[in-house]
Nucleic acid binder design. Sequence first.
DNA 1: AAATTACGTCAACAGTACTGACATAATCCC
DNA 2: GGGATTATGTCAGTACTGTTGACGTAATTT
Lengths: 177, 177
Amino acid sequence: MTDRSPAAGKPIRTAITDEDGIDFAIIELFFFAYRDFTSDPDQILADYGFGRAHHRVLHFVNRRPGLTVAELLDVLKITKQSLARVLKQLIDTDHIVQLQGPRDRRQRELYPTAKGRALALALARPQSRRIRAALEDSGTTERTSIERFLEAMVNPELRAQINIVPAQTSGKKNGDH
Amino acid sequence: MTDRSPAAGKPIRTAITDEDGIDFAIIELFFFAYRDFTSDPDQILADYGFGRAHHRVLHFVNRRPGLTVAELLDVLKITKQSLARVLKQLIDTDHIVQLQGPRDRRQRELYPTAKGRALALALARPQSRRIRAALEDSGTTERTSIERFLEAMVNPELRAQINIVPAQTSGKKNGDH
DNA sequence: AAATTACGTCAACAGTACTGACATAATCCC
DNA sequence: GGGATTATGTCAGTACTGTTGACGTAATTT
């Protein structure tokens, strides 16, 4: 293991360059930024025996109260089996409650409890703090410029999901199918 | 399961707001953006039986040829046991070679092979394309503004690692394929 | 010579994802 | 009415990536 095996290719000693127009700088920054961004809530989650999956579920249930299981799966892009464990734990710990769908009784509308709302806020707080600091530190005058860039990074087909949220409109349940 | 259990908290029907100054919009966008950003190479990796961990190792070995195992662990912030499996596979498949450290023969300097270099480029290509498109779509005139924001999102202690890379990208804006 | 360092490896386990299969209740449609 | 479909739940097995802890070896340091 110390040396190369007989048939191994020769080592390339030069660093990869941007010769091909590959934006390694931003690729790398995105990795570091996201890693640290998610590390903030990870600390808190550990105290609850939760993981990132719990955070994501909690986030979207708080953002779109009353969404159904199917809608949640569509937003998270995971399978129902994968969601099941995590959602069950959040329900068992009284962070989320399910209500039978009013129109379609097969559906389960998901709502946060006060406890779930509080945790979602606690998890988002350090992330928001980091974002605010980053905007200041980077001298970003227009917050929306970052927003626009991030949104443009999302697959076009999925951008619709993002805009579902009633930005400032609190108290009003919105377009559920 | 249909209804709330007896002691469950009451459902909150209002969407979480930005009232507390929490920047949910960017938090959410960051999640979607990173998810789609990583989904690009995931397709290619699947063909090799590799995962994201392989990609990250490959990326940094190409970016910093000759880095030691310890340095790689420090950049990735994972344990050596976690790195071992992934690194071994990349070495066995002749994407990476190890050379004994010249000064300290205990060390293993990691280098990409031509094969490893090619794969790293192939993985980065769609990501770079996405970034370039996002910069254009969002009307970002100054590429560096995004760079600065992302860098500011990284923990201060870790920013040093980012700037290790010799060749800088400053002048290059696009010209991608 | 002893201690430390760099790396490798074995074992066990956790969290999150996947596929496939099957069950139940509710709704839809002929 | 009755069959098909839909929404959800659940069981079983598997993969990938991460963890901790322990131990071994070679090389370097003290």
